[in-house]
Design a protein around this nucleic acid. Structure first.
Lengths: 230, 230
DNA sequence: ACAAAAGTGTTACGGATACACCCATGT
DNA sequence: ACATGGGTGTATCCGTAACACTTTTGT
């Protein structure tokens, strides 16, 4: 039984804003690529693709990220549906944008290379095709809002991280320095970080203790009405 | 010059969560209708419609609201794109949901009647078709977040309103009482409300002064980095 | 005179901010 | 011994929350 058959269909795409972070650098990166098909071939672009009839839009977004990075089960959130009539000169396309957070050391370098993908610092972002710069701006704004009230920062860090690394991440996201005493106090006061015995000794002589985020504890606290807040 | 021609197209719809408020009652209302076509004919549903090839998704959302209420230029915000494979038993449809805020006295009663539409209190919301209840839940959550940090409450009130009416609106949105001294102080301290000489005398013998929201002043303050916050 | 809603001030508390020195260790 | 980044405590400020009585006026 089929309904709605007389209604016109539309090309539907997804585009992925893929954020990456490396705990040793201090910048948030974005994965973009040289587009290898028309229109706008050769220009910088986000990774995207069309939604197939037999896949959900979330599924399409996951497929796109996996094609480019080899990663599955990464943090992903729907950003916005872009549906202006003239956003893509190649035709009338509605695109649902998603943003993802990945650890910069995890992705598949071969796959990325094959697609002509590069990590770009946010501060050096070039002009992208169509409305992709607008997508990035919107994604960054949403990321900043999210990172304040949900513990998604940890998606960008390895399992073990130091407090200075965590602070570096937040400083990269918000592009502003934090007071290290206040930052540490605030984070530790939530009792969500587990201190390990091991120290990170690359970046300082004294060494900084590793911590890890306790997801189970977070979920437990959530049920009691706890709100993560930075 | 056409590109992308070999890619499959998809049915794209919009659904509208239309919130309404009447300053004399104390409840937030939702406009829903009895669906008059298959599938799920006769069940409660949000107002929706398909996106035409020659209209933007925002345009489709505006058209839908106008068809049902006769209103244009109402506050409207994109909520979320729902793209699960089985969300509509009538076929594979991706739907972009929007929510709108309207003043309950403004809409066209004839149009609404013709579509079989009714205003329902949030507390009495029935089962809606497909994922429409989920849409409403999500819209309500977003409305609550927005109303805290942007002056959108005024979209639900007439140009002239009293402080107790404004408080009643916020209490309806958040389903929780506020202290009237603190509420009044906070709102007035932003210097965005202009006190009029006139009083509203229906609901009390003493009468309450009317105020109006000063949009120009708000925009001016925004430029200086002001943040609306309740 | 009384009922019913409008309007008004002060205090206490807690979280946020600002700020400077000591510690550990590799060279 | 010194340079480098890690780690710590306290005082102040400000916004938030709690709370009860007076005013106006229609009946």
């Amino acid at each position: 039984m089929k309904f709605y058959e007389k209604h016109p269909k539309i090309l539907l795409a997804v585009d992925s804003i893929i954020f990456g972070f490396n705990e040793n650098e201090r910048e948030l990166k974005l994965l973009i690529l040289k587009r290898n098909f028309e229109p706008a071939k050769g220009n910088w672009s986000l990774m995207g693709g069309f939604v197939a009839p037999e896949e959900s839009i979330d599924g399409a977004a996951e497929r796109i990220v996996k094609e480019l990075t080899g990663l599955e089960n990464v943090y992903m959130e729907q950003l916005f549906a872009f549906g202006g009539l003239t956003r893509d000169p190649g035709g009338r396309i509605v695109s649902v944008a998603y943003f993802s957070l990945i650890k910069l050391n995890d992705y598949d370098r071969e796959l990325a290379k094959k697609h002509g993908a590069y990590w770009i610092s946010l501060s050096e972002l070039p002009d992208l095709i169509f409305d992709h710069n607008e997508m990035v701006t919107k994604a960054l704004r949403k990321l900043r809002i999210r990172a304040r009230t949900q513990p998604i920062g940890f998606e960008l860090l390895p399992e073990k991280f130091t407090i200075p690394q965590l602070q570096g991440l937040y400083e990269a996201i918000y592009q502003t320095p934090f007071d290290k005493r206040n930052f540490r106090r605030k984070l530790l006061s939530m009792n969500l970080l587990e201190k390990l015995d091991e120290k990170e000794k690359e970046t300082s002589k004294k060494g900084a203790f590793y911590y890890k985020f306790n997801q189970e504890k977070y979920e437990e606290l959530l049920l009691k009405g706890f709100n993560f807040e930075i």
